[in-house]
Nucleic acid binder design. Sequence first.
DNA 1: TGGCGATATATACGTTTATACATAACGCTT
DNA 2: AAGCGTTATGTATAAACGTATATATCGCCA
Lengths: 112, 112
Amino acid sequence: MKKIKVKCWVEDEGEKFYGPGPNELLKRIQEEGSLSRAASKMEMSYKKAWELVQRLNQHAEEPLVILKKGGQHGGGAEVTPQGLEIMREFENLQRKIAELVEQQTDLIKVLK
Amino acid sequence: MKKIKVKCWVEDEGEKFYGPGPNELLKRIQEEGSLSRAASKMEMSYKKAWELVQRLNQHAEEPLVILKKGGQHGGGAEVTPQGLEIMREFENLQRKIAELVEQQTDLIKVLK
DNA sequence: TGGCGATATATACGTTTATACATAACGCTT
DNA sequence: AAGCGTTATGTATAAACGTATATATCGCCA
């Protein structure tokens, strides 16, 4: 069974910036309130997740995630309103592209 | 400057089958008439190009590329009519997706 | 002030992936 | 029969990437 796959992401100056991976991480952070728990829930190493957050915050106009260490619960992670907005718009784009692809049957016909 | 990128490809039973790489290889084969020249023109190792052709021909209903060895010119490579049809339909899909993405400005606005 | 849970950071290791290199096989041409 | 250019195939090396591990830091709380 052959299927058409599609992936979209955002680059900044030719460098990967925001895509499906970062988007899932932000969603998990929102659910968990913790970067380490968010990372382990999506089978991503903490190191990779942390570096990803650094890259996101550096390339964005305003931080998308706030990391806090120490304190009552030892620290935590939070998605900012800007982060939420990007999540919303990115998933919007993904949905539109997926809808377009579903309508395309010619290529699959050729492949059988 | 932030840009939206998109990539599409075809999978067969969860395995990568046809995408931008194979598509470019087929185009080069058509131009060069030789797998080794096609590979070097696109900075791909001959070995990888050869394995790619094997995978394409195995997963397709009919071969997409014919390889011949020995003979007047030492051998050569040729894209079959089925290969040409897949190239055409794949580039069609790429174009439609690119057109859709160009219309989407909301995400870029959020990112600035 | 010691403990807790989370962030912060470096190092070592293993896995994957691609390339470079070498060599063989093929079939026409001279 | 020798030469040529291309396909065919294995091996060794190298580069990229992700992970596992270990340790340090922070700040509230009991």
